[in-house]
Structure formats: C-alpha cells, structure tokens
Amino acid sequence: MPEILVYVDHVDGAVRKPTLELLTLARGIGEPVAVALGDGAADTAATLAEHGATRVLVHEAPEYAAYLVVPKVDALHAAYEAISPAAVLVPSSAEGKEIAARTALRIGSGVITDAVDVAAGGSGPVAEQSAFAASYTTTSRVTRGTPVITVKPNSAAVEPAPAAGAVEALDVTFSAQATGTKVIARTPRESTGRPELTEAAIVVAGGRGTVGDFTAVEALADELGAAVGASRAAVDAGWYPHSHQVGQTGKSVSPQLYVAAGISGAVQHRAGMQTSQTIVAVNKDPEAPIFDLADFGVVGDLFDVVPQLTKEIDARKG
C-alpha cells in the first residue's frame, strides 16, 4: 500500500476533527502517515494511531508559532522528501491551503483545494469539489507530480481504525524564508463553549430578521449542541462577529442540519450552506428564497417560532 501523507491540524496536541476525517479518506487510497508540528506535536500520536495513522512524524520548534506559514511548508516538504508519499492531504483551512500550495510548488506538483471527497481512481486520487457557489460538482485530478489536495471539514466520517502510529522524529531544516513574517502577538479566540462553525454537525444561523438580537438563535444552538452562524447582513450590521459569517466571503459549512432564522437566503449566503444535508428555515417573508432550499420551512416571526422550538426540544428530551 502506498503511503499518504496527512498534515495534522492540532491545538497544543488536541487533534482537530477535520484531520481525523482526512485519515478516513487517506485509508481509502493508502496507508496514512501523519505529520504533526509545533508545541504538543507528540501528544497527537495516540489519537492519530486510533484513527489509522501507521506512522506519526513529529517536530517541535518555536518557529512554528513565531513565524507565519513558511516553517510549516519547510516541514511538510521535509516529510515529503523523507517518505515519498503517493499523495499529500491537508485540511482546507486558510492556513492549510497556503501550506499545501507552497509545498506543491516546491515539489513540482499540482494542487487541488477544497475537495469534498477524495477517492482512488485509475490514474491517481480523484477529488470531488463544489464550484460556483455549490451549483456544480466537479471531479479533478492532479496530473503532474504527487497530488497535493486540501479537504474541507465534514467531507468524511471520523472512524476508529487502530494502527501502529509509531512516533518518529522528523528532521527539518528551516529555509531562509522561514523567518520572513513574524507573528508579534496572538490573541486566542474567546471560547464560546460551542462547536467550531465549520466542523459542527448542526448550525443555527441568524440574519437580518434577528434585528441584532441573537438570544433566541443562541439558545436554540445550545439546546441542539450546535454552532452559531450569521448572514453577511447580520455581520455587516455589527450584530455578530465576522468569524461566524456563513457565505461566499465567510465560512462555507456543510453540516447535517442547518437552521436559518431570519435569513432571506441571497445567493451570497447560499454559497456557504447549500450543501448542508437538511435545511430548515424560519422567516416572516413567505417569498424569501431560503424556502426554495428548505426541507421544512415556517413562515412566521422567529421570536415566536424559535423559542417555541427550543422549549419543545427541551420537553422532548424529557
């Protein structure tokens, strides 16, 4: 079986869910070899082994936190040289895509970003992508070099698949460019206690109809264990932080359930959520385009409907 290099996204050793999804996809095309960098890298090994990593290459150095992107490119490049994998998979975060693209260029390979599936094909891995605000589905291949593919969150199930997960030290020599962009301060995002928007199984999102009051949206999200999203209109009005924006210029989400409250469903917004498995909507305007996508819609005031829904879910939980 060919080895597939999987770049690990982790926070101080806690592996983020999209990486575990990558391991599932990697097992479909070969044997996953994980590469984990920075503080806590070695602590990722147990989780990665549980999900199918046969080897875990680790390297800890202060450069990964002190400088932007390039030290990680140097390391992924070194891991590529060390194991000559059949493909390289990277989570599709903003940083992941930059790391993947620069690495691909260095190794003379083509790069595909934002895949929603990766499967074995006759001439190498085939990546499925959504195009033009998710109105098209495409299949693509890398035709030169070793395929480098970034994969969006929620593209595969997380599956336990115990493997050796042998920890090996990765030898990394930083390039002259590694220290080019200094990170002079870092402010961690305040934890809301809710799941990460792009990774969540359920997203409850509010729009113009909230008129700035997200209390009902947040209460429903907490009842469902969901992440909170917001439309561009709500973010532009300053009602909710940009980090929660769903749409063309915000996050693109594909949860199992998307609840749109007071969101009209303009094309800008649909681009970021229409691949959700089930969509339900609450809106005062019966003509709102969101109802064309919704599996179940309620024409009504979200300040009546959403709290009643939250209360009912709570009652059903008993």
Binding site: A294, D295, F296, G297, K311
Partner: peptide
C-alpha cells in the same frame, strides 16, 4: 420541502 405558516404551532411543527 414543506412550508407551513405559523399560527401559534410553528415551533412545535418544526
């Protein structure tokens, strides 16, 4: 899919 108009039961229907 199904679209209903809230007549006091919208949340429970959802």
């Amino acid at each position: 899919g199904t679209v209903v108009t809230d007549e006091g039961e919208g949340g429970r229907q959802l």
